[in-house]
Amino acid sequence: MEIDVEQCLVRAADGDERAFAELYDATAARVFGLVLRILVDRAQAEEVAQEVYLEAWRGARRFDPDRGAAISWLLQIAHARAVDRVRSSQAQRNRDERIGVRDTAVPIDDVAERAETSLESARAKRALTELSEPQREAIELAYFGGLTQSEIAERIGAPLGTVKTRLRDGMRRLREILGVTT
């Protein structure tokens, strides 16, 4: 990466708007890609992406470069925001319309036609294939579908305890495969 996004975020914490713009340029496609993947609806994804950056701007001081990468920090904010949005009913409706009331699990290539597949994304997809099918399903329903563990249990007709175990074991396995970025 040509620019040091961590430094950008640290400088943004001191009110450096240019640094924040650089941060945006370096990360917006990832953030937007995630948010769009979850929300499907483009207009909503744009709104949420803007919320994410506003929140990052306000809370930049909370970012601690020793505790993780800036992109990870941003993506965590983005994920929570997008999931919030998807859980609000109107968003859910729009989204269901948009994807034709399909399963909430957005097929992995749903947005791929206009997405650039990064190396990292390829790696993540590969990692997902190393999980058991039920683990992969549970994690995708949670992470991309925005479902709670209870909703996942209901949807797939499995006991909640089973879903918890799948999420936990699946995520631990992913951590092993992908490592931790920092």
Binding site: A28, A29, R30, V31, F32, G33, L34, L36, R37, E46, A49, G68, A69, I71, S72, L75, Q76, H79, V111, A112, R114, A115, E116, T117, S118, L119, E120, S121, A122, R123, A124, K125, A127, L128, I139, Y143, F144, M171, L174, R175, L178, V180, T181, T182
Partner: peptide
């Protein structure tokens, strides 16, 4: 949570 962020490598230009 950090691991999970690696799942979303998809890039879409806003």
């Amino acid at each position: 949570a950090e691991t999970a962020t690696l799942l979303s490598g998809t890039e879409v230009a806003p």
